[in-house]
Design a protein around this nucleic acid. Structure first.
Lengths: 252, 252
DNA sequence: TAGTGGTCTAGACCACCGT
DNA sequence: CGGTGGTCTAGACCACTAA
């Protein structure tokens, strides 16, 4: 699978052509996915990988460039290239786009697990997670508060098969980003997500949980999160109070 | 300003060091900004630019890589590199993140200008556009409808100095993206933007304009748009009806 | 066919990090 | 100091486009 000898050229693979560096990227991705190098660990140097795959360092470099751009890997000059992890402060707010209106008052964030149970996937969840209807899923409900103010009410759905040992107790005992727990304990790394945002009125139960009036306008944020190879592994429905916060977005 | 002769090395410029390719990027950006090449036009080939700046083609290439990543230019293999423009179908929905819930029913979009007047900048607008308080600005109000349904009510603020000939008549006569008009007629190219999204209840006037009930939850989308060198040149406040649409976002 | 961007290589040197 | 990623060069060849 490597172009070992000088001058040997890589052929088109079926109808779709990939340049060499993209094939190398695929090989590295497979190693990441397979756990050859774990989150936070150092991967081999560019020179080493070049030797392993029988290509030039520049080609490996271009492959890693793309992996770094996709946040699968982090470069550190003088030290090496590391497998990205949700453990770092850097990565905390990569997926949560809610920000305080007055910048600076980041303040304390508190997460409280309300519920964690296993049940059969409702239709929409099964569809989003590409499961067969009625397959087992884990449902988590939790409340995020910022300096004591209840602000985000989340309902999270995960495929039951991949999250066997996930219990209310385990979640409640854990402090820190959920995605860090998922990657460390369940070998599932969240890579990217898409969100659909709408404005809705708070129903009675929601209003009570978030300590706002019934009918209060809230952001409804529906997220589908993907791991390697664009496989969906989480669906999330969040209700955000935007009195003192907003959903921030950068348009490139 | 160019490292013409072989072996001559570029020095640190004051306390901040830039690699050569980034300096080249700056020179190309300046030419874009100065109008040496207009939106939609072909810029010189990489070889030509390399000769002009006295660097290797690879260095120019890396500079253009970044410009392409920032959507300032568009590469077309076999043809050349073009100055990006808001005229193309590709670029239409780069800034408007509203999407129909049922994909596929893109349908007809209709834009109706409600108002266009010149006045002194209110405090928040002046601050966002980095103008002195009370400086002249243009205010535009418009309504976007999708298959006949009023959906977006926009209030747009522009610096008066840069948008002199902008009138209600000129806007109403124009069909197509506003940013295409701005770049063609006023030499102002919108590069990137940041948005802050909140959920709010429709007030009486808004409800009427959008044909919804008063108190209806709406998305409030506040945008600040920047041109070259991160100079803010537009502030926008939009109210979105999300009955059959949603605000779509990709989390990388 | 000529010209463009796209890929790949090999080798040099720089900037940064830890020991 | 040695090793890592970061920059820069020069040159070869490929893929695509237009004339």
């Amino acid at each position: 699978m490597n172009a070992s000898s000088r001058g040997e050229r890589v052929e088109r693979e079926g109808p779709t052509f990939s340049p060499l560096y993209r094939q190398i990227k695929g090989l590295i991705t497979r190693s990441l996915q397979g756990g050859e190098w774990k989150p936070g660990e150092l991967i081999p140097s560019e020179t080493e990988l070049a030797a392993r795959f029988g290509v030039s360092q520049g080609t490996v470099r271009k492959a890693i460039d793309e992996l770094a751009a996709e946040n699968l890997v982090v470069r550190r000059q003088g030290r090496g290239t590391f497998v990205a992890t949700h453990q770092e402060a850097r990565a905390q707010f990569r997926f949560l786009r809610l920000r305080p209106d007055q910048a600076g008052e980041a303040g304390v964030m508190d997460s409280r697990i309300l519920e964690c149970r296993r049940l059969r996937a409702p239709g929409d969840v099964a569809r989003a997670l590409q499961l067969r209807a009625g397959e087992a899923v884990v449902q988590i409900r939790r409340l995020l508060s910022f300096q004591g103010q209840p602000t985000v009410l989340d309902e999270i759905w995960l495929p039951g098969a991949q999250f066997r040992g996930l219990t209310f107790e385990r979640l409640s005992a854990y402090t820190g980003p959920l995605y860090a727990l998922f990657e460390a304990e369940f070998g599932t790394r969240m890579i990217r997500a898409t969100e659909r945002v709408k404005a809705v009125a708070a129903d009675e139960a929601t209003a009570k949980a978030l300590a706002v009036a019934a009918g209060e306008p809230l952001l409804l944020v529906e997220r589908v999160t993907y791991t390697y190879e664009d496989r969906p592994v989480e669906m999330r429905r969040g209700l955000y109070v935007t009195h003192r916060h907003h959903y921030r977005n950068e348009l490139g």
